[in-house]
Amino acid sequence: MTAHNWIDLAQDDETGIETLRAHFQGHAYDPHWHDSYLVGVTEQGVQQFNCRRVQHRSTPGSVFLLEPGEIHDGDAPTDDGFTYRMLYLDPHWLERELSAVFEEAPASTCLSFASTLSTDPRLAMATARAFEVMHQPELRIVRQHALDTLLQALTTQLHWRKQYPHDPRLPGVARLAREYLHERMHHNVGVDDLASVTGVDRFRLNRAFKAAYGLAPHAYLVQLRLASARRLLARGEPCAEVAMTLGFADQSHLGRWFVRAYGLTPALYRKRCSNVPDA
């Protein structure tokens, strides 16, 4: 973090929803993904990011919508930077709450956002209001009403997308390598291991994997570990133990990657998202 950049983060115990308000100038964060649905609104400046192989620019009043696993980055293309508010919605919570709005979900589907950016003023107001009441102490009934309003506004942006065990559009070599990384996330995996499993040389493997998933295999493995680190830290696990469990060289190694992806240290994230006192 620089003197001009700041992050204010909190987590709601009842719903598990994380709320974040942040300001960045220059480079904000490297390509990464989250396990949550992200719903955010830009307050000030121009928020530039790449997602779904397209560069987007979110300006004040715009709502940005990202699904779990969608790779995105962040930069401020103007000198004054950008400020935004974000809600991280747990997928199980979102699907359960929306069951009261949608009819029963079709088989083998998952919720998907129709677009990455929205200029719907109703959704922008609902997002800002939900952030306001979730980010600070407020009556439970007020919080629930704000979330219900947000969910109703979100229904115009959501649809049920067919969920495939394996995306048929992706090459088999990339799928095999990805499965191997997920199964051995905690291990010291090498590119030669992936090449052996997939039956191709390292160079073809790297090209296929990056074309399919937007990241090289080593960067994808780091993101897997960082997503797990967020979950463990939010439960109050000590930073050093999280680093060791997930295969990082040490706590500093975890910290460097965590800051590059999320803009804050693991210790600060743990403090804001758990009730465990600092060690």
Rank of each mutant, 00 (worst) to 15 (best):
T2N: 10
T2S: 13
A3Q: 10
N5D: 12
D8P: 03
L9R: 14
L9Y: 06
D13W: 08
I17Q: 04
I17S: 02
E18S: 15
Q25E: 08
A28E: 01
D30H: 04
P31R: 07
H32D: 03
D35Q: 13
S36Y: 13
G45H: 10
F49M: 09
C51T: 14
R53T: 05
V54Q: 12
V54R: 12
H56N: 07
P60H: 09
S62M: 15
V63T: 13
F64P: 08
E67Q: 14
E67F: 05
G69W: 01
I71W: 10
D75K: 05
A76Q: 00
T78A: 12
F82D: 04
F82R: 00
Y84Q: 04
R85D: 00
M86C: 00
L87N: 00
Y88S: 13
Y88V: 00
D90H: 07
P91I: 03
P91N: 05
H92K: 15
E95K: 14
R96Y: 15
V101C: 06
F102N: 08
E103S: 08
E104H: 01
P106E: 12
P106S: 06
A107C: 06
T109W: 01
C110Q: 15
L111W: 12
S112F: 12
S115V: 00
T116F: 06
T116L: 04
P121K: 01
M125E: 11
T127L: 05
A130M: 07
E132N: 11
V133E: 02
V133R: 02
M134P: 08
H135S: 13
Q136L: 06
Q136F: 05
E138Y: 09
E138M: 11
L139I: 05
V142S: 03
L150F: 01
L151G: 01
Q157H: 06
L158A: 07
L158G: 06
W160K: 04
K162T: 14
H166A: 15
L170T: 00
G172A: 13
G172F: 01
V173P: 04
V173K: 09
A174L: 08
A174F: 08
R175C: 08
A177D: 11
M185D: 04
H186V: 05
H187D: 15
H187S: 13
N188Q: 10
G190F: 12
D193A: 15
S196H: 15
G199N: 05
D201I: 10
L205A: 07
L205R: 02
N206D: 06
N206P: 00
N206K: 10
N206W: 00
N206I: 04
R207L: 07
A212L: 06
Y213A: 03
G214W: 03
L215W: 04
A216P: 04
P217E: 13
A219H: 05
Y220H: 11
V222W: 02
V222C: 03
Q223N: 09
L226C: 00
R230D: 07
R230P: 02
L232P: 05
A234V: 15
G236A: 13
E237D: 12
C239Q: 09
V242S: 12
A243W: 01
F248V: 10
F248E: 03
A249C: 05
D250K: 10
D250F: 07
H253A: 15
L254P: 06
L254C: 06
A261K: 05
Y262D: 03
L264K: 03
T265M: 08
P266A: 14
L268V: 12
L268C: 01
R270N: 12
R270H: 13
R270S: 15
R272I: 08
V276G: 09
P277N: 11
P277C: 14
A279R: 11
